[in-house]
């Protein structure tokens, strides 16, 4: 990574509690434009919450969040909706719209925010479904898909609008190794070909290391280590060491 690249996302001393549960306790994190940052951490440590704060779906109690030079915790809701269009988010549970066909799920943002003709939209949907290896599923309902297929449709939906920043919440969890490898390849491909900035949240080390430019580790509501894959593997931090080595 070139050091004088500009930051596209920044968290500054972000705190978030749910009643007594103090999830984020002063999170600081900056992300370069065009890089793929992998966030590792134990289940329940606040990885999904971090992504939702970035999308303005959850507001932090304290702290500032910058996207593309704009501080987003104070902007009016209306502006937030346009800021969100910079992002594509793959939700942990896919979150497909169950009342809509696969094609309408993938085309959702296109229908909402563009004036593209129906024919163009059908083309884009087709291309995105091919991209995730699900050609021909346009007419199916989400309830007719397997978990892994849903995840891939959700990925196609997140990418259809060609966002500047992709957020992946556990993109490979619960998938077979072959599909997982395909998805990891997809994440690398989007970064390489479209220059998209990506944040990948995971607790699967192998997956994480295979896509990362940099890796950050969250524990107790803070980033306790951030750096290249080698730096993380050679970290002296006790938690990072245990996390990487696994139990035993």
């Amino acid at each position: 990574m070139n050091k004088d690249q500009r930051y596209i996302i920044g968290f500054q001393d972000v705190h978030k509690s749910f009643e007594e549960n103090h999830v984020l306790q002063g999170l600081n994190l900056s992300i370069f434009e065009g890089e793929t940052l992998v966030i590792l951490g134990r289940s329940g440590c606040g990885k999904s919450v971090t992504l939702k704060i970035l999308l303005g779906l959850i507001y932090p109690d304290v702290g500032q969040v910058f996207v593309d030079g704009e501080e987003i915790t104070q902007v009016p809701e209306k502006r937030m909706f346009s800021i969100r269009q910079k992002f594509g988010m793959l939700f942990q549970g896919s979150a497909l719209f169950d009342s809509m066909k696969v094609k309408d799920n993938v085309a959702f943002a296109l229908h909402e925010h563009t004036k593209k003709s129906e024919k163009e939209i059908i083309d884009i949907v087709k291309r995105n479904l091919e991209f995730v290896d699900l050609a021909g599923t346009e007419e199916l309902m989400p309830s007719e898909l397997s978990g892994g297929m849903r995840k891939r449709v959700a990925l196609a939906r997140a990418m259809a609008y060609q966002p500047k920043i992709m957020l992946y919440d556990e993109p490979t969890t619960g998938l077979d190794p072959i599909t997982a490898t395909t998805i990891n390849a997809l994440i690398r491909k989007t970064q390489r070909e479209l220059g998209v900035t990506s944040i990948v949240v995971t607790h699967e080390l192998e997956s994480g290391f295979s896509v990362a430019n940099r890796v950050a580790v969250i524990s107790e509501g803070k980033i306790i280590e951030i750096g290249s894959i080698d730096e993380i593997k050679n970290s002296q931090n006790e938690f990072v060491k245990t996390f990487i080595a696994g139990p035993k």
Partner: peptide, 10 residues
């Protein structure tokens, strides 16, 4: 999370 997904899609 479909409501969140909708908001996330702008």
């Amino acid at each position: 999370e479909q409501i969140d997904a909708m908001r996330a899609l702008g």
